[in-house]
Every structure is written in C-alpha cells, then in structure tokens.
Amino acid sequence: MAGLRIAVFASGQGTNFQALADAANQGRLEGASLELLVCDKPEAPVVERARLAGVETFVFRPKEYASREAYEREIIAELQRRGVELIVLAGYMRILTPVIVEPFYGQMINVHPALLPAFPGVNGIKQALDYGVKITGVTVHYVDGGMDTGPVIAQRAVAVQDGDTEATLATRIHAAEQELLPWVVQRIAAGAVKLAGRFVTIKE
C-alpha cells in the first residue's frame, strides 16, 4: 500500500520542510512521501533544501499571474498530477483563497508559532513576547477560510524565559515546531487523526 503523498508549501528558510524530509527519509512518517515543494519565492533557501532532498518543486512568482486564484489553479493541477493527499503549510506567506482551501479542507494543515487562538496572523512570536505571556508555543491546525482559525490538531507549550528576546524565543519555538509537525504528519499518515466539526481526536 502506497504511503500518504504530501506537498509542502513554504516561502523561506525551510527548516520545517527539512524536518519533514528528514523524518520521511528516516522512516518516521508511516511511509509517507514528500512529492512536491510549492514556493512563491524562487530565491528562498527552501528551494535548495528540496533539491538536495530530491523533492520536485513548483516555484512561481505571484506577480506574473493575474490573480491569486490564477496561480492557485495552476498549483492544484500540479497537486492533482502527483496525487497529493495532504498539504502542509510550513512558513508559506501567501493568503489562500477558497479556490484551493475548499477542495482540500481536511487535507491541509498549517504550523503556527503560538498557542492559537492567541496571537494569530503574522509575528506570532513577537505578539506573545510583547503581550508579556509566560507560556506560548506551537499549534498545528487544519486550514479553513480564516486567519489561523481552523480546528486545532495538536499544540506544544513553550515557556517564555526572563530576558527572552524575539530571537531567543524563536529558537525554542522553531525547535518545538520541528518536533510537533512531523509527529502530526505521522499520525495523519497512520490514519489516527479524525476531524469532526471543530474537534480533532488523535489515536496514540
């Protein structure tokens, strides 16, 4: 039986992509495979990470398209051609439209650097630090039509330490992301994650 076929969407350094690629290569994803990287920035380091990992890429420049919907339709064609069953947003900095969200609802997840519903949107780490919370963390959630509003799959807490800067806190947040995201993908690949309304259950 073939494993889950995954596409990762990313825009930057690609550390979460790397965590998933390493987990797949080490056999920690229940036979799931990374079939495609989708990236909106041709110069992003994640593109080189994908090349080194042997993962195909679809790299595009949004300004070359008439609309978000136009490039999303092209992305969907690429996903369908590869039989992608799960989309993982891992630092993808583009707002998605219903063109891609609706057909992939329940098959698209995102990792966010805060304990949702607190501090959604951009700069979640800075928002938490500026607010003065003692505990923040990481959330992996399903993607719906809102800004980080989809059903929560799993969360991991990260303590804010006295004297933390955005950089020092980010180091621990990103480490938590790189542990939690592959674990969630592994449980999805194992068929252990069930979504019912806003509620997600995970069989151990």
Rank of each mutant, 00 (worst) to 15 (best):
M1F: 06
A2P: 14
G3H: 04
L4W: 01
L4M: 13
R5Q: 03
A7L: 06
V8M: 06
A10C: 07
Q13G: 15
G14M: 09
T15C: 07
N16M: 07
F17W: 06
L20I: 07
A21Q: 01
D22M: 03
A23C: 10
A23M: 08
A23N: 10
N25T: 10
N25L: 03
N25M: 04
Q26M: 13
R28N: 13
L29N: 03
A32R: 00
L34P: 03
L36N: 11
L37F: 07
L37R: 00
L37H: 05
D40L: 09
P45I: 03
P45C: 01
P45F: 08
V46D: 12
V47T: 12
V47N: 14
E48M: 12
E48I: 11
R49H: 14
A50Q: 04
A50V: 04
R51K: 14
L52H: 09
A53Y: 09
G54H: 06
F58T: 05
F60S: 12
R61P: 13
P62F: 14
A66C: 06
A70Y: 00
E72L: 01
E72C: 03
I75K: 03
I76K: 01
I76R: 00
A77F: 04
E78K: 03
E78Y: 01
L79Y: 02
L79C: 12
L79R: 01
Q80F: 05
R81I: 03
G83E: 11
L86N: 00
V88I: 10
L89F: 05
L89V: 04
A90E: 04
Y92R: 14
Y92S: 07
R94E: 05
L96P: 12
L96Y: 10
V99F: 05
V99T: 15
I100V: 13
I100C: 09
P103K: 05
G106Q: 12
Q107L: 06
I109E: 03
H112D: 03
H112P: 12
P117C: 15
P120L: 00
P120S: 01
N123F: 10
I125H: 01
I125V: 15
K126P: 02
K126V: 12
Q127M: 10
A128G: 09
L129H: 03
D130A: 15
Y131S: 13
V133Y: 05
I135G: 10
T136Q: 02
G137I: 11
G137A: 06
V138P: 08
T139K: 15
T139W: 07
H141T: 11
V143M: 01
G146W: 10
P151H: 05
I153R: 00
R156H: 10
A159V: 14
D162E: 14
D162M: 07
G163T: 08
G163D: 09
T165S: 15
E166A: 08
E166M: 05
T168D: 12
A170P: 06
T171P: 02
T171N: 09
H174R: 14
H174A: 13
A175H: 08
Q178P: 04
L181N: 02
P182Q: 10
P182F: 11
W183Y: 12
V184S: 01
V185I: 04
Q186M: 05
I188K: 00
I188P: 01
A189L: 02
A189W: 00
A192P: 00
K194N: 13
K194H: 15
K194E: 15
L195V: 09
L195I: 08
R198W: 05
F199Y: 15
V200E: 13
V200I: 08
T201M: 08
T201R: 09
I202T: 07
K203S: 15
K203L: 07
E204P: 15
E204F: 11
